[in-house]
């Protein structure tokens, strides 16, 4: 708001906003701090100054082979997103540029598949994975995550593509552009930002998925979400180690998330709030 505000009021609002923000961020901050403590320090009571040791990070890697779930997370998140884009880009493109009477119905139906609770298909998916040898494999989980997020990917791409103005194509055609030129030099550059934000948001969603990853993996294909969940009981009070594993699991996605917060609103509200 561009209204003139007194300096005093501004200071007041700033202090209040920062207090609320720090309170909300505190659990993450405290995890980062704890990851830099020794195990003794970690349970020694409230203390915001760690001894800045990287011991816990090393322990997580050497004891639990952290690298494996991390690689699995990257493969699952990136793989499922790329697969989804391959299927979704043509579909969203077609629906945005040559819509039919049923396009809106099809989009609503796609959205409705997201309403199906995951647990409703737990039994068949579990049995299929068990019998076909897909259990605890990266390929099985990649395809599954792709199917889960496909409706969101199509919706996001559709809302972006729909904003590319049709007149620009006509202008290009008047200037003698062929269909190939149109796609390559006019549409693609305009579509790339939308595709990039869809990619980013979907990687975040796939990275954080924690129902199917826990159900369908044991050790071989377990990504970070399943790996961390297995920390719940045996690790007990090894908080520095737990924190180190947590920090490594959330850091990449936290940074990606900060970059994509604007697209997040659009993407997750299916374009209803911009």
């Amino acid at each position: 708001m561009a209204r003139a505000t007194s300096r005093k009021a501004r200071i007041g609002w700033t202090v209040a906003a920062w207090l609320v923000a720090l309170l909300i961020f505190f659990p993450i901050l405290y995890t980062i701090i704890t990851s830099l403590k020794t195990e003794q320090e970690a349970i020694a009571g409230f203390d915001l100054i760690p001894s800045f040791t990287l011991e816990s990070f090393q322990t997580v890697q050497s004891q639990n082979n952290y690298f494996r779930p991390f690689t699995n997370s990257v493969i699952l998140a990136v793989g499922s997103t790329l697969l989804a884009l391959i299927v979704a880009i043509p579909a969203a493109w077609a629906m945005a540029f040559s819509p039919t009477k049923r396009t809106k119905d099809i989009l609503m139906w796609m959205l409705s598949t997201k309403m199906m609770p995951a647990v409703a298909v737990l039994v068949p998916i579990y049995l299929i994975f068990l019998r076909t040898g897909l259990m605890d494999t990266r390929i099985g989980l990649t395809v599954l995550l792709m199917l889960i997020n496909l409706p969101i990917v199509i919706w996001m791409l559709y809302t972006y593509f729909r904003e590319i103005p049709g007149e620009i194509l006509e202008a290009a055609r008047m200037d003698g552009a062929t269909l190939r030129d149109e796609i390559l030099y006019v549409l693609t550059p305009m579509a790339i930002p939308g595709i990039a934000s869809t990619l980013l948001l979907n990687i975040i969603l796939a990275w954080n998925e924690a129902f199917w990853t826990i159900q369908l993996t044991t050790t071989n294909a377990a990504p970070l979400s399943a790996f961390i969940a297995s920390f719940s009981s045996p690790q007990g009070l090894f908080w520095a180690k737990l924190s180190a594993a947590s920090v490594m699991a959330i850091a990449p996605i936290l940074v990606l998330g900060w970059f994509s917060q604007k697209q997040l609103v659009r993407g997750l509200t299916f374009g209803a709030v911009k």
Partner: peptide, 14 residues
């Protein structure tokens, strides 16, 4: 906005 990007098992364990 940060807590939204924390995966559920990590949030719960923290």
């Amino acid at each position: 906005i940060s807590p939204f990007f924390v995966m559920p098992p990590v949030a719960a364990l923290i």
